Simulated scan of single mutants.
Amino acid sequence: MTRTVLVVGGGIAGNALTVLLRRAGFAVDLVELREDWNSTTGSGITLQGNALRVLRKVGVLDLVLRDGFAFDELSLLSPDGTVVAVQSSGRVGGDDLPATVGMQRPRLQQILIDAVRASGAFVRLGRTVTAFEQDTDSVRVTFDDGTTGRYDLVVGADGVQSGVRRLIGIDCLPEPTGMAIWRAPVPRPAGVEHTHMVYGGGCFIAGCCPTGEDTAYAYLVERNRDRSAVEPAAYHQEMRRLAESYGGPWPEIQRSLTDPALINYTWFERLLLDGPWHRGRVVLAGDAAHACPPTLAQGAAMSLEDVLVLTELLAAEEVWDDGLFTRYRDRRYPRVREIVDGSVQLGQWLLDGVRDADVPGLMGRTAAMLRELP
Rank of each mutant, 00 (worst) to 15 (best):
L6D: 09
V7S: 07
G14V: 07
A16S: 15
F26E: 09
E32S: 04
L33P: 01
E35L: 06
T40K: 03
G44P: 04
I45G: 08
I45Y: 07
V54D: 01
V58P: 08
V60W: 03
D62F: 02
T82F: 01
G90T: 05
P106W: 02
P106A: 05
I113C: 04
G120A: 08
R124K: 13
R124S: 12
T136S: 14
T142I: 06
D144G: 06
V164Y: 04
R166I: 00
R166W: 01
G169H: 07
D171H: 13
D171F: 04
D171L: 10
D171I: 05
C172N: 11
E175L: 13
R188K: 15
R188N: 13
P189G: 12
V192M: 10
E193R: 14
G200E: 02
P210D: 02
T211Y: 01
T211G: 03
A218W: 07
R225C: 10
R225E: 10
R225F: 13
S228H: 14
M239Y: 05
Y246W: 00
W250K: 08
S256R: 12
L257F: 09
L257P: 03
I263H: 07
F268Q: 09
F268T: 01
G280D: 03
G286L: 06
H290E: 01
A291M: 02
Q298C: 06
M302H: 09
L308A: 14
E312V: 10
L314C: 13
V319M: 09
D321V: 07
G323T: 14
Y328R: 00
R337I: 01
R337P: 04
V340M: 04
V340C: 05
D341G: 04
G347D: 00
Q348R: 15
W349M: 11
L350S: 13
D352T: 08
D356C: 01
D356Q: 04
D358H: 10
T366L: 13
L370H: 09
